[in-house]
């Protein structure tokens, strides 16, 4: 009888004794409409009942940039590679912001979605992926802001800028940023289902990470051991590369970008494994 059963086709097989890891891409694809629906909902509901609506996506990086100009550029006197302050900070903040929103939105997946997850099944990866997409939208808006400033400086401030080949790498840089954000996010979200303490640690850690990323300072100012530490941060090369695409100073960080790509793949893979393990029974511990 057992042998007959194996020839039968079952669409879903759940067996606690065979705890295999499965990352079902086909199933995720079937739920692509849900991914988009969640992403749309996230974007739409952010500015419901606000007067400024999506303008808030712009005000944040703008004010932060102004603050950085005053504090780091004027008071602390940190150089900006000869790039106008607002463009220097905005370029860094835009791409760093994509990491930050992706990471923040995905790192609490299980805890914030416990109510839905407890009532209905869909591939749990749908939620973090949809967050990456809605974050991408916010990144897009902020990127347009940066381009706006760039054009303004070219037209009225005589900033000289030529089109360069590295601009073609921007989509890849964004992809790596999103990948790292997603990978880190799902790792943390898997860890926080049982121990919420990690949430506090992570909030603090992300704040520190900003200072280990060349957002406030240019990479050219950093030498020696400090440089090694900062380049160990996989986000650094992405921020650096993004800025290089518009303001080529020094060299494009190919080697470091390769390192970041490898870290991204490892994080995504490890994250998926952890996520997969947690998603089966997390409802009992969340």
């Amino acid at each position: 009888m057992k042998e007959k059963e194996t020839t039968e086709h079952w669409d879903v097989v759940v067996d606690a004794d065979k705890n295999r890891i499965s990352i079902n891409i086909r199933e995720l694809w079937r739920y692509r409409d849900l991914i988009m629906q969640f992403a749309k909902r996230d974007i739409a509901t952010v500015y419901y009942q606000t007067i400024l609506g999506p303008l808030w996506f712009l005000i944040q990086p703008l004010l932060t940039s102004l603050l950085f100009i005053v504090v780091f550029s004027n008071i602390a006197g940190i150089k900006t590679d000869g790039i106008p302050g607002i463009l220097f900070y905005l370029s860094g903040l835009t791409v760093w912001g994509y990491f930050l929103t992706s990471f923040n939105a995905t790192s609490n997946t299980f805890v914030t979605n416990a109510a839905i997850f407890g009532k209905v099944y869909f591939p749990r990866m749908v939620t973090p992926i949809s967050k990456i997409i809605s974050s991408l939208f916010i990144f897009g808006v902020q990127f347009l802001l940066f381009l706006g400033f760039l054009i303004y400086f070219m037209l009225f401030k005589g900033l000289h800028m030529s089109v360069n080949i590295y601009m073609l790498l921007i989509p890849y840089l964004v992809l790596v940023m999103g990948g790292i954000g997603l990978g880190a996010g799902i790792i943390i979200s898997s860890l926080t289902t049982k121990y919420r303490d990690i949430t506090f640690l992570v909030t603090f850690g992300v704040q520190l990470l900003l200072y280990l990323t060349p957002v406030i300072y240019p990479m050219t100012e950093i030498v020696g051991k400090k440089r090694m530490i900062i380049l160990a941060n996989p986000i650094s090369s992405v921020v650096e590369g993004f800025r290089y695409a518009f303001f080529p100073v020094g060299q494009f960080p190919f080697k470091h970008l390769a390192y970041s790509s490898i870290v991204m793949v490892i994080m995504l893979f490890a994250g998926m494994l952890m996520f997969n393990k947690i998603e089966k029974n997390f409802m009992d511990t969340v």
Partner: peptide
Amino acid sequence: RVTGPTKGGFKVKGRIASLLEVGTGFHQE
């Protein structure tokens, strides 16, 4: 498939839709 079994398992043919609650995921706004 909201939570997993401790031992044993089950098999299903076809698509399952479950209504453990009405209005899961409704958004107020």
